[in-house]
Design a protein around this nucleic acid. Structure first.
Length: 945
DNA sequence: ACTCTGCCAAGAGGA
């Protein structure tokens, strides 16, 4: 934005207005003259110190936040740097820089799982870099008479979020130093200051980047320590350089920071209602700078994608993107745009900003925050880097129960002080929440802050779209793997198959495979065959209830028996573990990668973590662990794991592939020769927040994109879940009759209600005593022999309410509550019942009515959460009862969501909704309508359970 | 117009 005073003019601030969440400035370029302008200061974007200092040479680098080290392992020097940092920090904490200690620490660092995980580990620590005499680190000030001595260590790896400057970062060492200035004559006591100390293990460059980093850290810690300067400590020489942040330096760096933020917020621009990628900051085209830039490919890709070619950079672009043809570039730029749009939507609802934009009181009202707490009792060290803290409400403020805070054990939290001076002090997990106290494990020891008032905020974490972008960028790489994948994914080259099974099937595996195949039905066997014959990929359509998990499990067993290596993935941990839980019953070994906290308890013994506990002390032992199993399982996001710097697989299987967005789904495919996508695009698509991104096709999964090659598709259409009537509803809605029952037993299975007769007689006697109520409709509703019922509430006064939190319909909720109590009384097990609604708000109002213990076991959940699962009896609440289709809402209009909802039921499906709304788009329902009398939900008796 | 799961992160150093 250029203000009226011109690009770089100066302004007077005439007035400052404070509003919640933002400030307004009234400014003018002349004190006495008009035009005044109003600036709105808001938002809470924090930029890291390193991002800013690395942008000094080239601002573009910042926008290409793609971490290559995750797949090439990084350089020797970087690894060395990380390790020496740690050795120094540990030695400093122990206040011991003796050679013995240093070498002990260095050995520990070499064996620490963190570094062992890096397969490219072949670094020897240069211990002589850290000799004791150097570590005392005297300054070489210009002003030789000034002496700085490090008196005490205040902190290491301190995490700072500074909303005031919009900066964040981690400070290597925070030190208390004594500064003795030469003053003529008299007694001068040394000044004490707490300052940031930045360690560098490379060449002593004292470069502008290094110095800027220190200046930024100094700014960040201004509010904490009032530090005026920081220090650069080069460990190779032991030299300590003071870096005094001059006003101008700080100002320039903050201006750079602001420019970066401006570009972030404006990475997409609208033109004639259509969004497109904005221009990035100008390309530097300085051979010297660009030659070694790790981001040059992305830089060139972006430039080519933006379709603005300048002559100066043509050869640079040619060099980096010459191997790509226009469709490749447009695929890249299309998805880049989609990701930018989506990122903006995700950033908008990023809850982390609340920590500094809202007071604790405000935040507490919205839930997931507890303010005014103090440390109580000592901090105990649970394990390396895990500190157990206990907090209590400060007695100063009126007590409010902590349990009602919206925070629950297991939640991720951020700890800050109440005042907003120490933001983001620590992060961790809540372990216990009681009425009076909260305990949690944090990544830092906060014992030195006893007496400080804290606030704990729930932290959803910020996951940008960096994995998406990394995968997209990788797809464009000039190498064999990427070329092939690009051909298949972007050019849509038809997949090839070999004709003869005998060439892939080892003779000795034939019997085993034949044995495994025995338990499968026809389409499942076909799927196995197709996969074995594939040279590129196979798509398996798993319609509802067709034994998708079993099929995948069997596929893995067969591939395993043939000696093929398999990478097994899905988007969610639970989907991965679902297959593994089945797989572990057979003699198939596997390695499960991923955080223990997220892994199913029964799968934990197969994780890397637990294998390590048995002892991995050397690189070769680690390699053994990584290479031992033919089958490796992880989530699609888990591909940053170091195992992938080396290992490749014969097959990659992606489950729930129709729910994964293209860039994410690509990730694991880089590591396998062939892949298998399993899904069903008639079920739920990937969730996309941004409306425009969705309309531009971001919710198209790779599964759906590749489905146009029907030769690669196998359909599992024999299902063992639904009885005939429920299945035919789905068939007419979605599958055009292709879905079949696997057996007559499946087709005719009904709900068992042992006491249905007694409930019915109870109802009829109730009818007699209450003749004013028409209860004729309830009999067919309850009857198991009537598997599909649509209860039409259109005669019942609609109570649909649209609130801020979502949509709910109390009438439907009340009706469901009463019918449920009848069904349970009739002998239906609560655990056999699922209640589904499209909206969370509706689930809340239903759950509120099901508090009595008779209902425990009834699972109330969203359609989305129910995907992949089933129940004997499903009650689905449509909630919406509008006649205006335009007002229906996107969720219900999506047929795929409706399809998922109705196919969760095995034996009986009760739908509650309004025909007014539904006949608009689902006429098949009309065959199953049960017309409700007015006030049906009130007329029904409340059964005592 | 309300559906949701991923992820540890800012920085390791080189020209």
């Amino acid at each position: 934005v250029i203000l009226s005073g011109g690009l770089n003019n100066r302004y007077w601030v005439l007035d400052v207005g404070e509003r919640p969440g933002h400030k307004t400035l009234t400014i003018s370029c002349s004190k006495s003259l008009h035009p005044t302008e109003t600036c709105l200061l808001k938002d809470g974007c924090l930029i890291s110190g390193t991002s800013i200092s690395s942008s000094i040479r080239c601002m573009r680098r910042f926008f290409m936040l793609i971490d290559y080290c995750s797949f090439d392992g990084g350089s020797k020097q970087m690894l060395n740097g990380t390790m020496v940092h740690e050795v120094f920090q540990r030695a400093a904490t122990a206040k011991d820089f003796s050679l013995e200690t240093l070498s002990k620490l260095a050995n520990q660092a070499l064996c620490s799982p963190q570094y062992l995980g890096d397969i490219s580990l072949y670094v020897c620590l240069c211990l002589n870099d850290l000799t004791p005499s150097n570590s005392k680190a005297r300054t070489r000030c210009q002003d030789l008479a000034t002496v700085v001595t490090v008196a005490e260590l205040a902190d290491i790896e301190e995490n700072v979020w500074s909303p005031r400057f919009g900066l964040k970062g981690k400070i290597d060492v925070t030190a208390r130093v004594r500064i003795q200035r030469p003053r003529s004559g008299s007694h001068n006591t040394p000044e004490e200051r707490t300052v940031p100390l930045e360690l560098k293990t490379g060449k002593e460059s004292n470069s502008i980047e290094h110095r800027s980093q220190v200046i930024l850290y100094t700014l960040m810690s201004l509010e904490r320590y009032n530090s005026e300067a920081g220090f650069l400590l080069y460990l190779k020489t032991g030299n300590l350089h003071p870096v005094v942040a001059s006003h101008m330096d700080s100002r320039e760096l903050l201006k750079l920071r602001n420019t970066l933020v401006h570009h972030i917020h404006n990475c997409v621009e609208k033109e004639a209602k259509r969004s497109r990628l904005s221009r990035l900051p100008e390309i530097v085209t300085d051979r010297q700078t660009c030659q070694y830039c790790p981001q040059k490919r992305n830089c060139a890709l972006y430039e080519s994608a933006a379709d603005v070619r300048e002559d100066v950079v043509r050869d640079f672009l040619e060099q980096e993107t010459g191997h790509l043809i226009p469709p490749h570039l447009s695929y890249f730029s299309h998805w880049l745009l989609l990701c930018c749009l989506e990122a903006a939507s995700m950033e908008a609802k990023n809850g982390r900003k609340r920590v500094w934009l809202q007071t604790a009181e405000e935040s507490e009202k919205n839930g997931s925050c507890v303010g005014n707490v103090q440390l109580s009792g000592p901090v105990t060290v649970q394990s390396e880097g895990v500190f157990l803290h206990r907090f209590q409400r400060s007695s100063v403020v009126p007590q409010k129960g902590l349990a009602s805070s919206g925070l629950a054990s297991g939640d991720r939290i951020v700890v800050s002080d109440q005042e907003g001076r120490l933001v983001g002090l620590a992060t961790g997990y809540l372990s216990e929440v009681s009425m009076t106290s909260i305990s949690c494990t944090l990544d830092r020891d906060l014992s030195k802050f006893s007496g400080v008032l804290f606030r704990l905020d729930g932290d959803e974490g910020v996951i940008g779209l960096s994995t998406h972008l990394t995968n997209l960028s990788r797809l464009m790489e000039n190498c064999q793997d990427s070329d092939r994948l690009r051909e298949l994914v972007v050019d849509l080259r038809p997949p090839e198959f070999i004709s003869n099974l005998s060439s892939v099937l080892p003779r000795e595996a034939k019997d085993t495979v034949a044995n495994i195949l025995k338990g499968l039905n026809k389409p499942q066997k076909q799927a196995m065959k197709k996969v074995l014959l594939s040279k590129d990929y196979t798509l398996i359509v798993g319609m509802p209830g067709t034994g998708k998990t079993t099929t995948i499990c069997t596929l893995v067993r067969i591939l395993h028996a043939c000696g093929f290596s398999v990478l097994l993935t899905s988007y969610t941990h639970s989907a991965v573990d679902n297959i593994l839980l089945k797989l572990k019953r057979f003699r198939v070994g596997f390695l499960r990668l991923g955080q223990g906290q997220k892994v199913h308890p029964d799968i934990l013994p197969y994780t890397e973590e637990s294998a390590r506990k048995k002892g991995v002390h050397s690189l070769s032992e680690l390699e053994q662990l990584y290479n031992k199993e033919l089958v490796v399982a992880t989530t699609c996001m888990g591909i940053k794991h170091p195992i992938f710097t080396r290992r490749r697989f014969d097959f990659c299987i992606v489950d729930e592939a129709s729910q994964i967005s293209q860039p994410i789904c690509l990730g694991p495919l880089f590591y396998a020769k062939r892949f298998v996508l399993v899904g069903d695009h008639q079920q739920l698509p990937p969730i996309v927040q941004n409306q425009e991104a969705r309309s531009l096709g971001m919710d198209e999964s790779l599964f759906k994109r590749l489905e146009l090659h029907s030769g690669a598709v196998v359909q599992l259409n024999v299902q063992y879940r639904m009885n005939r009537q429920i299945m035919s509803l789905s068939n007419s809605l979605m599958y055009e009759g292709r879905l079949e029952c696997g057996s007559e037993r499946t087709a005719t299975a009904l709900l068992t209600l042992p006491f249905v007769l007694s409930v019915q007689s109870e109802l009829s006697s109730y009818s007699k005593t209450h003749p004013q109520h028409d209860l004729a409709w309830i009999q067919p509703t309850l009857l198991p022999s009537n598997p599909v019922c649509f209860l039409d509430c259109s005669t019942v006064p609609a109570l649909e309410s649209v609130e801020q939190g979502g949509v709910s319909n109390p009438t439907e909720a009340a009706l469901i509550h009463k019918i449920l109590s009848l069904l349970i009384k009739a002998g239906c097990k609560p655990s056999d019942i699922g209640v589904i609604a499209p909206y969370r708000q509706q689930l809340k109002s239903i759950s509120a009515l099901l508090q009595s213990s008779a209902f425990t076991g009834v699972e109330v959940n969203t359609v989305d959460r129910y995907q992949g699962r089933d129940k004997s009896l499903i009650i689905f609440s449509f909630v919406r009862s509008t006649t205006d289709e335009g007002n229906l809402g996107e969720l219900l209009k999506d047929w795929r969501r409706l399809n998922v909802a109705i196919t969760r039921a095995k034996h009986k499906l009760l739908m509650v909704g309004s025909t007014k709304t539904l006949r608009l788009f689902f006429p098949e329902l009309l065959h199953h309508i049960i017309q409700l009398p007015p006030a049906a939900h009130e007329a029904l008796p409340s059964m005592s359970l």
